[in-house]
Amino acid sequence: MPTQSTETTGSRQRLARIATEVLAPWVWVLGLPLVVAWKVTGYHFGETVLWGLIVGVTGSLIPMAVIVRGAKKGKWDSHHVTDRAGRLVPFAVCIGSLGAGFGILIAGGAPHEMIALAAAELVCLVAALAITFGFKFKISMHAMVAAGAGVMLIRVYGPWLAVLFVAVGWVCWSRVELGDHTRAEVTAGTTAGVFLGGGTYLALTMILT
């Protein structure tokens, strides 16, 4: 018969796995551009779908398809690529695909907020690549993307969305609870997300306005 301690541990693990999947980077990167585009296009459905999906597809769906396919073939440990050494190709795919989307936004005359969003995501990816392999430090992409998205949404919709940082805290806890990251790695990811992701977005929206 399971002990209370075993049941508690099992519940914590389930809660952590839910956070890790529901608040995964690809989920944020797919949903965030659509939510931002909805506001910055003046709630125009067609433009929201157009600009939001350019970022979402190139920044999330295409890279995730490659990563999942690679994981199934055994190229890396899972679709979260928890092994630091295995992250080079996924990072390269993410940067290349999103870079193409960034070019499409510029060529198509997208709203400056969408260009700033894609640029901020690229900055985070390049920084994460440099930190992961230059410093051999597995910075948490879950934390980085969630924190950056939180800052961007506060900028677009207002300070009341600071409540999203409850979700940021939840996903950071989940990564440590599952043993995929250390506290230092999720702290570094959160800090980078706020200052690199959110900071780049804030700066570029002011410059491009």
Rank of each mutant, 00 (worst) to 15 (best):
A37E: 04
L202S: 11
R175Q: 09
G150C: 06
I154D: 04
A203S: 08
A203F: 10
Y157S: 00
P90E: 13
G59L: 00
S5H: 08
G169D: 08
A107E: 07
R84C: 05
F102N: 08
S5R: 14
F137A: 14
T9G: 10
G169M: 08
A110L: 15
A188L: 10
G70F: 00
A127F: 09
G197C: 03
A149D: 02
W51A: 06
L196T: 00
T3Y: 03
T9K: 13
T132A: 14
L164H: 02
G199T: 07
L105G: 06
A120W: 01
M152H: 00
Q13G: 02
H44D: 12
L153Q: 01
R84N: 12
P63W: 00
E177S: 14
G46A: 14
P111C: 09
R17L: 11
L153I: 08
V163I: 15
A85R: 07
A127H: 06
V35A: 10
V81Q: 01
V49I: 15
G197H: 04
T20H: 02
E7G: 02
L53P: 01
G99N: 04
I104F: 10
G148S: 05
L32P: 04
T190H: 03
A203G: 03
W26R: 01
S11G: 06
R183N: 10
A167R: 08
V93I: 14
L202E: 10
L15V: 07
V171H: 09
M206L: 13
W28P: 03
A37P: 00
K72E: 08
A146M: 08
K73G: 08
T209P: 06
A192M: 14
A37H: 01
W26S: 00
K75C: 03
G99D: 09
M152T: 02
L34T: 06
A65V: 07
A119E: 13
L208Q: 15
A85M: 11
K136E: 15
R87S: 05
I106W: 06
L161K: 03
A149M: 06
G150N: 11
F165V: 11
W38T: 04
W26C: 05
K136F: 01
V194R: 09
K73T: 01
W26H: 11
G52M: 01
L122E: 15
I95N: 06
W170I: 13
K39L: 02
A71P: 00
G148P: 03
T6K: 10
